[in-house]
């Protein structure tokens, strides 16, 4: 009998709040982003699941109302480990500024992440979005989003929910996971209360995350592939 040799493909999209209020903790969040994909891969490898394709992309977000089109800094997917340096450079280049007062455009960033160019490769896939923010989310308002984002932002929270729950959508119905490191409040609590395949750590961008909870999160992504 010939070895099956299943091929695993893992895509991760990081949504990182880069508003001024994140200044004290942004370096730690960047460190966590660089560590996160590594931990998922290690977890898979320890279970003899060979990751053939691992890609990450980053969406830095601020507040459309305050920052206009500069509210979004997004990268394409980086293939790791080949494009590790470019990934690190992109993350390193994110600087905390703007945003005005809370809330921020976190849901808009999440919508962009859901619509990512997810891989169709591999026999089994895991598609993960991780959000780090210290603020509640601005209500969705496509009309208020500047070009070129107005066409890419759902008109309201229900439309965003449809985007996530759509079984024929860009993300696989069973392979997607959403990890929220975000405070309780509008947007984020609605998501963790209603959406499937979500793990929410109510916090200021992951502050106070215990090792036990971090391990649980990694297992929830990697062990179920």
């Amino acid at each position: 009998m010939v070895s099956q040799g299943l091929r695993y493909a893992v895509d991760i999209a990081f949504c990182i709040d880069v508003t001024g209020s994140m200044s004290p903790i942004l370096d730690k969040v960047k460190e966590n982003a660089l560590r996160f994909y590594d931990d998922v891969q290690r977890n898979l490898t320890e279970k003899s699941k060979n990751v053939d394709e691992l890609r990450v992309r980053v969406i830095g977000f601020r507040d459309f109302k305050h920052d206009g089109a500069a509210a979004i800094e997004e990268s394409s997917f980086f293939s790791l480990p080949d494009e590790q340096a470019a990934f690190s450079d992109f993350v390193g280049g994110l600087t905390p500024q703007g945003g005005g007062d809370a809330p921020e455009s976190g849901l808009e960033a999440l919508a962009l992440a859901i619509a990512s160019d997810w891989t169709t490769g591999g026999d089994r896939r895991r598609q993960v979005i991780v959000v780090w923010t210290d603020q509640p989310a601005q209500p969705l308002d496509a009309a208020g989003a500047p070009a070129p984002y107005s066409d890419r932002v759902p008109k309201d929270f229900s439309a965003l929910t449809d985007l996530w729950e759509n079984e024929q959508g860009a993300m696989g119905s069973s392979s997607k996971r959403l990890i929220l490191f975000a405070p309780d409040g509008p947007g984020w609590s609605d998501i963790s209360g209603v959406w499937e395949n979500v793990v929410h750590h109510p916090s200021q961008a992951g502050q106070g995350l215990s090792d036990v909870d971090y391990g649980t999160i990694i297992d929830s992504i990697a062990n179920s592939v």
Partner: peptide, 11 residues
């Protein structure tokens, strides 16, 4: 059980 702050239908 260790205290957890996580909210999820997955866990």
């Amino acid at each position: 059980a260790p205290p957890t702050a996580l909210r999820s239908k997955l866990v």
